[in-house]
Design a protein around this nucleic acid. Structure first.
Lengths: 201, 201
DNA sequence: GTAGACATGTAACCAGTTACATGATTTC
DNA sequence: GAAATCATGTAACTGGTTACATGTCTAC
């Protein structure tokens, strides 16, 4: 959520949709977890509601009665024209985001993908650390998968097939990570900035 | 748990270790969820404690006092010699296991792997259904991954790399499922039963 | 004007983890 | 005999989902 708000202000509903895309549509967060989470972040000072009073100076058309204007001064509008609460990340939120992103916990697949998706916000060294940690993790997984294949000689066909597939896909993953690490160490061997241009393929 | 107990009687601690291997060491269940789960299964009649009185006829060496013998008759030993509670699946548990295994919910990656790991216990048609459902799911995922790559032309390099890798690995997964489906439709084109013999490679 | 998507929020429930408490067996 | 591992269990906390409640905007 912080990563998405870092790019632009968003309201909860929209945030949920983008979260679904980012984490894979497998797990889109429910409203019952989304709104409380926003609330917690707000209470923690990591996000704030974009009041609109802060950036636009126009205090409505002046047709308000004095009492209503006073009410609004005490309770600034927290909704946009369509009744949505638009959130924006605060400086404290940015710091929180960075520390969460750079934290080197031994993370699972989901967490790694999430971190990598926001890798552009990481310092080069942290990015490399993330990739190296991931690589080590995959190497270990590969060793286990191979051990399972060897030790479990008389596995049933399905368990055997799973072990084979695990081995192959972990190998592919390691290759991918290796390419990312190589690209990290030797920036732009064609690609990247070039691909941002509109030359096809 | 039911699937593991179907093959052999196990005590909780051992069950947890095997569970860790089966689900991937990423997520080994905690004791706080393991023991209550066993309890629930026992209460539901799906598993029972292997009393030892049922299969071994030897009621200890006879050195028990009458009172202790009477106590044991009322409260049959629920622990093995080393104080472990060994569980065994019941007929009701077998039925429950089969219905859980055959249930065609749209399951996530973890659930699919779990079902496939026990696919030998499924009827041929249910097994095929599981594979077909999985294939459809992966095809949909591939379509989305490709759409993401096309639409998000100016993705940052990391998001782009993730999308590419997702595409490639989903393609590989589909190929794997296709091979499994083919093997299912045309049993033993060399392999399977042969591999159960001890001829190497 | 009404059906369907958009939008926010709460309360009850559920399931899992962490931390704690306890004790037996094995190994050095 | 001390340490590590095996082994079972409970209680408090956590965090998420489901279901509910409510209301607005858009398109037909």
């Amino acid at each position: 959520m912080l990563g998405l708000l870092k790019d632009q202000e968003l309201h909860g509903y929209e945030l949920r949709k983008r979260l679904g895309d980012a984490l894979g549509p497998l797990s889109r967060v429910s409203f019952g977890s989304l709104y409380p989470a926003l609330r917690r972040l707000e209470k923690a000072g990591a996000v704030e509601v974009a009041t609109g009073l802060d950036d636009g100076g126009i205090p409505t058309t002046g047709s308000l009665s004095g009492e209503l204007a006073a009410f609004r001064a005490r309770h600034p509008v927290t909704r946009d024209a369509r009744g949505r609460k638009v959130y924006r990340i605060t400086p404290a939120g940015e710091r929180l985001f960075e520390s969460l992103l750079a934290a080197d916990t031994t993370d699972d697949d989901r967490e790694f993908h999430l971190r990598l998706a926001f890798a552009r916000h990481l310092a080069a060294e942290d990015r490399l650390g993330l990739l190296e940690r991931r690589r080590a993790q995959l190497v270990e997984r590969l060793a286990r998968a191979r051990a399972a294949m060897r030790s479990g000689r008389r596995l049933d066909p399905y368990a055997r097939s799973i072990a084979e597939h695990d081995t192959a896909s972990t190998e592919a993953d390691i290759g991918w990570i290796d390419r990312l690490i190589a690209a990290e160490r030797d920036p732009s061997p064609r690609g990247d900035s070039e691909q941002l241009e509109d030359n096809h393929s």
